[in-house]
Simulated assay, not measured.
Amino acid sequence: MAFDALVVRKDDEGKTHAEVEQVELDQLPEGEVVVAVEHSTVNYKDGLCIGPGGGLVRDYPHVPGIDLAGTVESSEDDRYKPGDKVVLTGWRVGENRWGGYAQKARVKADHLVPLPDGLTTRQAMAVGTAGFTAMLAVMALEDHGLVPGGKPVLVTGAAGGVGSVATAILAALGHEVAGVTGRPETADYLKGLGATQIVAREEINETTKRPLEAEAWAACVDAVGGPMLARVLGQIAYGGSVAAVGLAGGADLPAKVIPFLLRGVNLLGIDSVMQPYDNRLRAWQRIAADLPMEKLDAMVQEATLADLPKLGADILKGQVQGRVVVTL
């Protein structure tokens, strides 16, 4: 029986077009598990895959959606049985494999994680790759010594998907959180998530010739990269860490090594795509335990498959606040 999917096609001129179409089960890629998808979400990579591709999509037609959550419909793997609730993020699903923007998905069993107790599939997709990445960043900072009670923790790109969840988690864990944003109108939103300080982007986005500044932050979750990350490294307190999760401000890092040598600052790279199973499970269990669900609800907007072409374009322009839940 056919089902709905957002299908992206490329024309002879190389332009992409995304529309909701009917798809048959035998069109789905190979895999051991068929999932009846209940919810998905919208990430920056999804915007690329819905639109120009960003070098992520190999073949067209393509079904994007790097995240999905739903119920197992059939399984050839003993780890999952019909009726099980599951989550999938990463593994380049939605990029070089068809993804979650369809009412059904056929996936590899190794790519799935059981839905943790206490989370619904909708909540899991309100978290999605962005929130999963945020928790990986918090866990990495904790593994390198971050504890509540010290200087504030800085979150750059705080009103975005990763930043919103990181702000809520850190605040719930007892940290003071300073949120960096280029959109002054998001200040009340960030304070509602638990931020105690709002930092205007222009205050921290300029490069400086000084390799060290006053020790302002215990740690940082950085979704921006570029000159802002370079500046932040010189403001981290002795022995503190920066978890780098994104490059919205550019891939270059015009930084000096002095913060690493004189203050023992750590720069921690966070990858959510190829995370091993055990750490995935640990992160999702921490999300279920430590992310305040009332704060999660406050950062969510609802969407359908038909809304995705516009949302994909909006997220590439930095115009999506918080998280989007797509109901399939």
Rank of each mutant, 00 (worst) to 15 (best):
G14A: 14
E73A: 13
L48H: 15
G182E: 01
G318I: 05
F260S: 02
A306N: 15
L247N: 14
E294G: 12
D290E: 15
A223T: 14
G226F: 06
A223M: 06
A124G: 06
G14D: 14
I169N: 00
R282W: 09
V155H: 00
L170S: 09
G250A: 01
Y101E: 01
C49L: 03
Y60I: 05
A251E: 02
V245P: 03
I315E: 04
A218M: 04
D278G: 00
V34C: 08
T156N: 12
L296P: 04
A102F: 13
L233M: 14
A298M: 11
P276Q: 02
Q275L: 12
V86W: 06
L328E: 00
D307S: 10
V35N: 06
G157Q: 08
G239Q: 02
V320R: 07
D143C: 02
R183G: 00
A5R: 06
I169D: 02
K15L: 14
R286T: 09
E24R: 07
L296Q: 03
M125V: 07
S75A: 13
M228A: 14
Q103N: 14
P254N: 04
L229S: 02
G53Y: 01
N96H: 13
E76P: 09
I258Q: 11
A134V: 13
Q275W: 08
N279W: 08
A5L: 03
Q321C: 05
L173E: 11
T207V: 15
V42A: 01
L261G: 05
R58M: 12
A223C: 13
Y101Q: 06
A223Y: 01
A109K: 06
T71Q: 10
R183K: 15
L212R: 12
L68V: 10
P29V: 13
A126V: 11
V138W: 10
Y101F: 13
Q285F: 03
A159L: 04
T41H: 10
M228K: 04
L262I: 09
I270Q: 04
V324H: 02
V324D: 00
G322T: 03
K310P: 08
G51F: 09
L262W: 07
L146C: 07
R106E: 06
H144G: 06
D4V: 01
H144M: 05
V8L: 02
L56C: 09
G145C: 12
L316S: 07
A216T: 14
E38F: 11
A306D: 15
Q321W: 02
L146M: 06
K85P: 03
L190N: 08
M139Q: 15
T129R: 10
V257L: 12
E203G: 14
A137E: 08
G70I: 08
Q22S: 05
I204T: 06
D77L: 11
G249S: 02
M228Y: 11
I66C: 09
Y189L: 01
